[in-house]
Design a protein around this nucleic acid. Sequence first.
DNA 1: TTAACTATTTAGTTTACTTAAAAAATTAAA
DNA 2: TTTAATTTTTTAAGTAAACTAAATAGTTAA
Lengths: 212, 212
Amino acid sequence: MNAKVKVEKAKSEKTKVKKTKENILDAAAALFSKHGYNGTALRDIADALEMKAGSLYYHFDSKEQLVLEILTIGLENIIDTVIRRVEELPENSSSRDILVAAAKGHLGALLEKGDYTSTSIRNYGQMPVAVQKEGRIIRDRYESMWRKWLVKAQEKGDIKDSIDLKILRLSILGALNRTLAWYSKKGDLSIDEIAEIQVGFVWDGIATSDAR
Amino acid sequence: MNAKVKVEKAKSEKTKVKKTKENILDAAAALFSKHGYNGTALRDIADALEMKAGSLYYHFDSKEQLVLEILTIGLENIIDTVIRRVEELPENSSSRDILVAAAKGHLGALLEKGDYTSTSIRNYGQMPVAVQKEGRIIRDRYESMWRKWLVKAQEKGDIKDSIDLKILRLSILGALNRTLAWYSKKGDLSIDEIAEIQVGFVWDGIATSDAR
DNA sequence: TTAACTATTTAGTTTACTTAAAAAATTAAA
DNA sequence: TTTAATTTTTTAAGTAAACTAAATAGTTAA
């Protein structure tokens, strides 16, 4: 057997195993998303795949590692969505437009993506502490993107010099994330509109000129 | 034995049991706060009190009910703190001052109160879903206080008519709650300063007049 | 076809919540 | 003070779910 064939075989083996692993991840994400981390037993995941719970350990070291992989995929998903949204903007868009686009991407990923993303966000708090810690590393990478956009806006003179950008960034993301707790598809506002409104609060302020 | 004495006896019995229950709550709050809900076994709580785990069931139906009582106390604590802060204000304070006072109370309770409050906030997500649901009832009561202050401010003409107060309220509280994730006592800003800054963002806006 | 490797199952062990019955401690009544 | 009743704690399970290791089954390479 020549090298070429050997490589192909190795690949097909790999995809086989990989496929099983993917199936496990998909089933787990769906169940976690619906019943929460603690509400989903490995038994449930295995049942969904017509497997035995013990078999999962061939593919994952622990339930913890399994949910960590789901979390990672979900968070990367958010990052990709936000980056794409901002990159789609025309060159020389205003600072405000960039922040609004990022906010729209953020909310969109949070609210209308699949099981991985929703598990990552909705069940983040239920996950083992060690998993949350790993998640924080990815989140930090994400937040540094926001940091960059805000610094640029302030350097352009669009954000007042007196504004503390760290607190601003955390406030904006805190406000956006809270949307998860109350947004409903049946509401009268679209996700994009909500993002626009929330950025509007901090950009323009809510006070009348009288009250300042 | 006359009625008076009987009543006193009944009372002393009650305080005895009550005291044990309180001790359990205190120990549990301290451990939950340090190691999280799932990280704390009933065994650990019992050990701290030199009891056996089974004994806890005389006082509480389940671990779930135990943490629910802690959550309730912690949330009531926040409500009381915020109300007090706002009531301490002079009559006819400005709308801005009221919101700032409420924000200071909120952050103060979140960041520097005892084990009950910090367990309620930090570990909320780890608690059983049924407990979270109960917590939401109290939180709703709390949020309606904010609703009231915001409506009053808008009626006075201090908040622009175009502002959606529901989204505003959720944004503000989302931003304030996020502070838990990054605040450190060693930082250069006090809790009150952080509250002032965060309300300032939405009240005055962050954009320079050029960028609006 | 056989040997090696991969994947799954089986049959447990462990840990932690929970329960019920027994034991101990406390209080009330005689 | 002794006995009876009540309260509180412990003991000794039961149960559920994560995890492990050994056995088995399935697949691929030579």
